[in-house]
């Protein structure tokens, strides 16, 4: 989990989130990413470097091009987090069960 801090700061930037959003649709080259964001290729490359270091994207070599895609490990981290969110929610809702039991008991008391 040493990449967590890096992933967190990488995701804090709106441009990098937009780049990830585009990559969620499929692989893209620097040139393809630079166009819709109205950014220079070096600027896009800097963002990609941050995302790659954080382990959120991977790049492969295809001739002179280095297309980027979302890293499967990033997707794995999200799945793992979903499990934790499920646990946190389950704790809240287990407590809610107790609150509801008490509410319904009081309700019955009022009716009688």
């Amino acid at each position: 989990m040493q990449t967590l801090d890096a992933a967190f700061s990488a995701l804090a930037d709106p441009t990098r989130r937009a780049i990830l959003s585009r990559l969620a649709l499929g692989e893209a080259t620097v040139l393809e990413l630079a166009k819709p964001f109205d950014m220079s290729q070096p600027a896009v490359s800097r963002h990609l470097k941050v995302l790659e270091t954080a382990g959120l994207i991977t790049r492969r070599v295809e001739g002179a091009k280095r297309p980027c895609r979302l890293a499967s490990s990033a997707i794995g981290e999200i799945d793992r987090w979903l499990d934790m969110l499920r646990q946190a929610l389950e704790q809240n809702y287990n407590r809610l069960d107790g609150v509801l039991a008490q509410m319904e008991q009081e309700e019955e008391g009022n009716v009688k």
């Binding site: 989990m1 967190f8 804090a12 989130r17 990830l20 969620a24 649709l25 969110l85 646990q87 946190a88």
Partner: peptide, 21 residues
């Protein structure tokens, strides 16, 4: 708002989830 925001939300929430775990 978009796929990357969901990814970001899940990633930021992960920090707190981890802490609790």
């Amino acid at each position: 708002p978009d796929a990357a925001t969901r990814t970001a939300m899940l990633a930021t929430g992960m920090e707190h989830g981890m802490e609790a775990s």
